[in-house]
Simulated assay, not measured.
Amino acid sequence: MPFTLATWNINSVRLREGLVARLLTEEQPDVLCLQETKSPVEKLPVEAFEALGYTHRVARGQKGYNGVMILSKLPLEEAGAEDYAGLGHARHVAAKLENGVTIHNFYVPAGGDVPDRAVNEKFGQKLDYLTDMRDWAHAARPEKSILVGDLNIAPREDDVWSHKQLLKVVSHTPIEVEHLAQTQEAGAWVDVTRQDIPEGQLYSWWSYRARDWDAADKGRRLDHIWATPDISNAAHSSRILRPVRGWDQPSDHAPVFATFDL
């Protein structure tokens, strides 16, 4: 039975509850993974989502920062949460569907503004977080798994509006790209979005700073859907819903979708 999964950095689920409800109503994914919910679990606006049929969920949260949640029409059970790099942040939660697929929802640290861990602690935390993700994948050898989320790195040259101009900008520096590649290789993860859309510029984030983000189009592909090789060939219909970035009071991220015939 096919199911459609979406991932979206919502940048405050309580502030943008209406946008989440609109996406669920218009697109009706079976599973929606949210990042940067910025809410304690007990204050998440789940009633509105339950009314739309999303009666299953797992979440980790904290006041005002970070936070991850998996909403689902399909029954699921919690499959753990990790505190990589020992930050004490709500940045990961996992759930297992009845078909045996485990979904990992990640919000990787952004890393601050300066790509030098010697002067920017946040950048060091980002690299350490990715190293722990790599080590977990290497040890666990995940199977029948999907990894999604705001990984805060645009790895390919065509995942950013200007490879040359962003080489020294956090999210596209060579050291970040290498750390992400090591994480991907450790779990043999397949980048489902680029499996489906192998060529061309592709973005999921546009800065709030641009007066007209759509016209400037200085985007980056920071949001990802990966799958283990045993199920990656079942994935198809990948898409990024760019128009959502233009909704009223939007997140600076657009949702990313994929369908799995499993």
Rank of each mutant, 00 (worst) to 15 (best):
F123G: 06
Y208H: 05
D230K: 05
W205Q: 05
H89T: 06
A227L: 06
Q62P: 08
H253I: 03
V256N: 02
L222F: 02
F3E: 15
E82W: 04
R141C: 02
L5W: 05
F123I: 10
L76D: 00
L166E: 11
V101E: 10
N152C: 09
D132W: 07
G112E: 11
E17Y: 00
L34C: 11
L130W: 07
V192S: 07
G124V: 03
K126A: 08
L241D: 15
P109M: 14
P255Q: 01
V192P: 09
R211K: 15
L130E: 12
A51V: 05
V169Q: 04
G86K: 04
V190Y: 03
R141P: 01
A51H: 14
P142A: 01
A186S: 04
G67P: 12
E50I: 01
T173R: 14
K126Q: 12
K73S: 13
R16H: 01
M1D: 12
D158T: 02
V114W: 09
S12A: 06
V256P: 05
V108C: 07
K164S: 08
W161K: 03
E27K: 14
V244P: 15
E50Q: 15
L5Y: 05
V108G: 00
N11A: 06
L167P: 00
D212T: 03
I146C: 11
R14M: 00
G219T: 11
N120T: 15
H163W: 10
E199S: 07
L23R: 02
R156H: 09
P2K: 14
R91F: 03
E27W: 06
E36Q: 06
R16V: 09
V160M: 09
H172K: 12
W213L: 07
K38G: 04
V41N: 10
W136A: 06
T131M: 08
K218D: 07
R60A: 11
T37C: 03
I240P: 00
A110E: 03
G112Y: 05
G112Q: 08
V160R: 07
S145R: 07
N99E: 09
T37R: 04
E42S: 14
R220I: 11
E47F: 09
G100H: 07
H163L: 03
G200T: 07
L151M: 13
W136C: 04
G246E: 11
R16K: 06
S145Q: 14
R60G: 09
W205M: 09
A186K: 02
A95M: 05
E36H: 03
R194D: 03
Q28M: 13
G64T: 12
D83S: 04
W247M: 10
V41C: 08
